[in-house]
């Protein structure tokens, strides 16, 4: 007979492991958004200019990049907000994050920092669309 207490502990461990492995995926979401935004912005513009650039100009591509950028920044903002909630900066200082018990909060902190760099990356990637008004 298994001790019910041990069983509960094991389930608890499994749940925590599941949650942390999810958190590992979670921290990749913002950089992935940045990468997808990059590929769509540059790849989409290249295809548009090759197929329609001479006759229809680049306005559609620029507006699409603007829309994509708003979507990407909105999603990264939401990820950042959720990451801060996981991090709980008011309840944890940096020392807390360096212990195994603070792994959950540490992953929230890391995800938040990746959200910041990804948001900067998305803005930099989109900036050419603000200035360049032709497919040439």
């Amino acid at each position: 007979m298994t001790d019910p207490k041990t069983q509960t502990g094991s389930r608890q461990d499994e749940f925590e492991f599941f949650e942390e492995s999810n958190a590992l995926w979670w921290i990749t979401l913002a950089p992935t958004t940045w990468a997808v935004h990059f590929v769509l912005a540059y790849g989409g513009t290249a295809v548009w200019c090759a197929k329609f650039g001479e006759t229809q100009g680049v306005t559609v591509a620029r507006l699409s990049i603007a829309g994509l950028t708003v979507l990407a920044l909105g999603f990264i903002g939401w990820l950042g907000w959720r990451s801060v909630r996981r991090w709980k900066p008011r309840q944890n200082d940096m020392e807390d994050l360096s212990h195994p018990e603070g792994r959950h909060e540490f992953l929230g902190h890391a995800a938040f920092l990746l959200c910041i760099i990804s948001a900067i990356g998305v803005v930099y990637v989109a900036m050419p669309a603000l200035f360049i008004t032709t497919c040439r």
Binding site: I120, V123, Y124, M127, P128, F131, I132, T133, T134
Partner: peptide
């Protein structure tokens, strides 16, 4: 480490990009 380099590099990027329409 974050705000100053981001703003400075962003400003330089905007300055460089603003020249590209003239060159086309």
């Amino acid at each position: 480490g974050v705000i100053f380099p981001t703003v400075l590099v962003g400003t330089l990027l905007a300055y460089g990009l603003s020249m590209m329409p003239h060159m086309r």
